[in-house]
């Protein structure tokens, strides 16, 4: 075991796969010699050289088009979109081209590629560099979507994403980059479509993701002190979605709370809530409650951003109130 930051885990995860497989290439803006704007890819350029780790112009469509064309001809590219908000300038390549082409061609092509991107808020960057866009990617048929919350999961899910034969949108919570976690030595390979139960409780179940995971865990500790014992599920993978774990753990406690960083309307928790309503309704002891960022663009000021994103305090009070009404 070694302690690693979430940021260091990214380079380690990519390096693990690039060492194993020559068909894995990595491209993006400032990712090579500079080591990435968040310093998440330090060392890759030195180890793998400028042919396999390529700096690109500021051309998001070209970056993802290159990844798509490379993937359809047998390579396994990893492309970086610096900030997830920038998906808006290359969404055609993601949503129309990469996602649809396998189906449209009756399975003639596969797109084994990974698009990794810095997602979400907490860094006071303002509305155009802070949005949590996992729900954008989730609603497009043909894309897989993962959001790791710990250094270990960064490595394991990166390996799973690279080895998967389908396109995977890999969203890194920017605010987690400096956070640390224990990581075992050696190769780590996880599985897409698997949620993990991080805490087992008997009174209520919290399903959450990415930056919200540590907040949900902290809230669960506070709630436990006040007599409400929560299960915490790290959903990790939105597509494929591990509904079995969510349904099982919801039925076990009779209550479900989602804690989501994405803006409220059609956030991922809406899909989870509807699945639970359809399939576990009679196991519920109360309504499903969603704790989300409000339906607003994110403000820049620290005080305002802190009000917008679900905080430990908001999670605690919301669950407390719901459980006592």
């Amino acid at each position: 075991m070694a302690e690693l930051t979430y940021r260091e885990a990214i380079a380690r995860g990519i390096a693990q796969e690039m060492r194993r497989d020559e068909s894995v290439l990595f491209l993006g803006e400032d990712v090579g010699a500079a080591g990435g704007v968040f310093k998440g890819t330090v060392g890759l350029f030195e180890e793998f050289g400028p042919v396999r780790v390529r700096d690109t112009p500021i051309s998001e469509q070209a970056i993802l088009g290159a990844a798509m064309g490379a993937a359809m001809t047998g390579l396994r590219p990893i492309a970086e979109i610096m900030f997830a908000d920038f998906f808006a300038v290359c969404w055609d390549i993601v949503a129309n081209e990469i996602a649809k082409s396998r189906y449209m061609t009756n399975g003639q092509m596969s797109f084994p590629l990974v698009i990794r991107s810095g997602n979400g808020g907490g860094l006071r960057f303002g509305a155009q560099h802070s949005q949590s866009v996992e729900n954008w990617a989730m609603m497009i048929p043909g894309l897989k979507v993962v959001v790791p919350s710990s250094p270990r999961d960064v490595i394991g899910l990166m390996a799973a994403a690279v080895r998967d034969d389908d396109p995977v949108v890999f969203l890194e919570s920017k605010a987690l980059y400096p956070t640390k976690g224990e990581v075992p030595e050696g190769e780590i390979v996880d599985a897409l479509g698997t949620a993990t139960v991080l805490r087992q409780g008997s009174d209520a179940t919290i399903a959450t993701l990415g930056l919200m995971v540590p907040r949900a865990l902290a809230a669960a500790e506070e709630l436990a002190a006040g007599g409400i014992d929560c299960t915490v599920i790290d959903v990790r993978s939105l597509i494929p979605l591990d509904t079995q774990t969510i349904l099982r753990e919801t039925s076990a406690t009779g209550r479900l709370f989602t804690v989501e960083e994405n803006p409220r309307v059609l956030g991922w928790g809406a899909e989870v809530a509807s699945i639970v309503a359809e399939e576990a309704f009679f196991d519920l002891d109360g309504p499903v409650v969603r704790i989300t960022t409000p339906h607003i663009p994110l403000p820049a000021a620290d005080t305002l951003e802190d009000m917008a994103l679900p905080s430990v305090e908001r999670i605690v009070t919301t669950i407390h109130k719901a459980m006592n009404s």
């Binding site: 469509q61 088009g65 290159a66 990844a67 798509m68 064309g69 001809t73 390549i93 081209e97």
Partner: peptide
């Protein structure tokens, strides 16, 4: 859209 994709190939 297909111009960047052709670049990738």
């Amino acid at each position: 859209a297909h111009l960047p994709i052709a670049c990738g190939a």
